[in-house]
């Protein structure tokens, strides 16, 4: 059962990398990075899953033998960080659109 989750992670990461590498529209590149981030979050959460585990919430817990909440904490942090990165990338995309009048990655001026 858990194997399917990892297959989904790989598929999501592949889609995201494809979008980030081959799409010319800057917004699509940002979306691609977001998909990779979702894959990473899914991966972390699925690592923390234990069959029949007890959630680490002390109020009304059945026993004190709970699962470690580290992966969940990591995922929350990673979601917050990715939100900041996405917001910054989108604001850059807006400024690029204002400067060049286009979101096409190939219509760029900085050249070798």
């Amino acid at each position: 059962m858990i194997g399917f989750v990892f297959l989904a992670v790989i598929a999501l990461a592949a889609i995201g990398i494809y979008a980030a590498m081959f799409k010319r529209n800057l917004i699509k590149i940002v979306v691609g990075i977001n998909i990779i981030a979702s894959a990473a979050n899914l991966f972390l959460v699925s690592l923390g899953y234990r069959e029949g585990g007890i959630a680490p919430i002390f109020t009304g817990a059945e026993s004190l033998n709970m699962v470690l909440a580290t992966p969940q904490a990591l995922t929350l942090t990673s979601i917050v960080i990715n939100l900041a990165v996405t917001a910054l990338m989108l604001s850059f995309a807006i400024m690029i659109y204002r400067h060049y009048g286009s979101l096409d990655a190939l219509k760029r001026r900085l050249k070798e």
Partner: peptide, 25 residues
């Protein structure tokens, strides 16, 4: 054009950091 350089930097480093996160996972 600074925004273009900044966008490029941020995109590459964001993808890199996510790879690091996969490794950590």
């Amino acid at each position: 054009e600074g925004f273009e350089a900044g966008f490029k930097y941020l995109v590459l480093l964001a993808i890199g950091a996510l790879f690091l996160l996969f490794g950590v996972g």
